[in-house]
Write a protein that binds this DNA or RNA. Structure first.
Lengths: 215, 215, 215, 215
DNA sequence: AATGAATGAGACTTCATTCAT
DNA sequence: CATGAATGAAGTCTCATTCAT
């Protein structure tokens, strides 16, 4: 559960907060989102049922926290890549690599939880809270990808691209791959990396005699 | 609700079966997967609660049926494209178009339901039923995409590709785009279409002087 | 439990409705309002827990129903008295008698429940629902007493009185006596009846040479 | 909150004891008896949750204390009246006045709390603690009223009465009026005072040619 | 004496499912 | 076939009380 090592939490209550969140993640991963009972989370965390509610307003609040941890992690990874002194195409390759390598340290059950929470959180986003974080968190990710793409264009490595839309595509592709890894874990990740990298990059690299397919 | 017009269902009980399935889809889309009650489904379908259980073994069984309808639709669309007399690159473009146009006739709530069921169904796939359809249905889709890609290679339009892996990538990309459309419905679909098409196709089209990034 | 014999309830569901209400009254009387669990009510009524909620929206809804039964009973008793062919002073005496005799068929625990619900219901009346029945139910009682008092004035038995205010006083006195019977059940009811009757009636009877205390 | 000014409390801990009691009264009045949380009481009193339990054994203990304060106040008022150098009929009038004037300085919510505690306390009296104060406190009040009534008889102002029963009736009437003021606060208190005084007093004053209604 | 983090028993309520009609 | 009244397991959350500091 390397998932909850970051410490961007209100200090002072960090210990138990993390303990409960970690336990929740474990329990939900094992049982599913609804099957996973708060009582189990408490037991797993080694605290009383009431204590869970000292740190989280509701079960859904735990979901949100898990999802936020997930986004924190992604963003942190992206920032790390972005801050490295690399040409843009290498950065894109690193991105891809990071994304797919995530599955080597994460069980499908864990990844599935993210998806479940994601789907449920999305619903509440559509129905209730207008300033829900989801869209903003994705926007942040998108913008970081945009900056990499724009760097590439500036470096003359990438042809002029609609970086905003392309960043969206890239983000979607990475998420889609994650999704499909959930379905089929026998896929050859290394092969997937290279195929994806080549398909994506050779389409945006500046080339002498490119030919658009027009329309 | 054009979603449930196809009739690949056990004949004889078709009327009510479809009525219930349609009602379920509506109710779940409106309320969410867990919030949506069987009682509401029955009322929406204009039948008694007990009748629902004449046609479906359980609530989860309804989920499965909805998901199957979804896959039926996708597969039917793919087949349609594949059977057209078009060069492979046009077929890929059509695929992309179809995929993104789906959102013009589907509300986010409806799409969300698919995602929710998908995530939940996936769990049961991982935990319980080994011959669950999900992976096979995706495999069928993947194979159809493979055949398009291989057609392109045979036609000399596409460079020699690992069609299996690339089909997976394509599938993942389309799903990923769907996912992100759920998050951000303000995205410009037409722009996304062209950017995606170009990014994807120009990377696999045969070109005079392509330069691989190697590794 | 002669308390729930009246049948002014939506017909068709009368059986179980009454069974649950009767059970609830019994349980609440035994355990108190909060200690009395719905589970116990269900068991006492010989139905499932869920069945209780088929007939009542919530625990509070049961409270309300009990209170309404109580008011129904009082009103029915008042009407009976009022419709009898008696001079007003006899009617007042009958009222008093009825009121105090109620305790011969009702246990203190049962009467206490009424008081608890009454107090709680009153709170919700002050805080939330503006058209709560409580005040209207009391008003109806008050008006029936007013009509008795006015009859007495018309008959020349009572001196001209502010019938509205006096009816309120009469109502309050009867309720107050009920309250104190809860506290001290050793009181001699028959003695209380005659003392109260005399104190109340001799103050309102027409007399030759009454002397007001003025102010 | 003039309610808690008297200081018949264990000295030395008076400050915080009173602070907590006052806070409790406020919170319970605002939220109701069960809704009012100890945590809120503590916050309102400006002390820690644990501190509440330094001064009170339990929540119910607070209830009892509140009720006792209430009785203290009533008794103190009665004593004051009783010790004045007045004829008995004036004393009765003063009693009535005091009782109804109480509502001018007390909000319905506060009065309601008394009623709620009263009802709940009564239950515990019936079920558990045989030496509960309630009956004794009321007995004390009753005895003070008896002494007023007997004074009136001795003075020749009141006809010979069963002072014990009549004191009970008087007490019940005053409580009943309080109760009904909770229900209907629009009642004209001054009118109620005079009607009640006249109805009650003229029934017990010595008169030349009274005529009993017999039976 | 004062505190408040921790507790966990307990309660209401929901809802998928059954089955007698 | 159709129904919907009945069910009861299950789950979230509350809150009075304790106790180590």
């Amino acid at each position: 559960m390397t998932f909850f090592n970051n410490t961007n939490r209100p200090p002072g209550q960090n210990e138990k907060y993390i303990a409960i969140l970690t336990a929740a993640f474990k329990v939900f991963a094992r049982e599913g989102l609804h099957r996973g009972k708060i009582a189990d989370v408490a037991k797993e965390a080694g605290v009383g049922k009431g204590t869970v509610y000292e740190y989280f307003r509701s079960k859904e609040d735990i979901f949100t926290a898990i999802l936020n941890q997930f986004f924190d992690q992604i963003q942190w990874g992206l920032e790390t890549v972005n801050q490295q002194d690399l040409p843009a195409d290498k950065k894109v390759a690193r991105l891809l690599e990071m994304n797919l390598d995530w599955f080597k340290t994460t069980t499908p059950e864990e990844a599935l939880i993210i998806t479940e929470i994601w789907a449920q959180g999305l619903r509440s986003f559509h129905t209730a809270e207008p300033d829900d974080a989801m869209i903003h968190r994705y926007r942040a990710i998108q913008e970081m990808m945009m900056s990499i793409l724009e760097q590439g264009v500036a470096e003359g490595i990438f042809r002029p691209v609609d970086s905003e839309t392309l960043a969206l595509l890239l983000m979607a592709t990475l998420d889609g791959l994650g999704l499909h890894f959930l379905i089929n874990q026998t896929m050859d990740i290394e092969k997937l990396k290279s195929v994806t990298r080549r398909a994506f990059l050779e389409g945006i690299l500046v080339r002498q005699e490119s030919q658009s397919t027009g329309e």
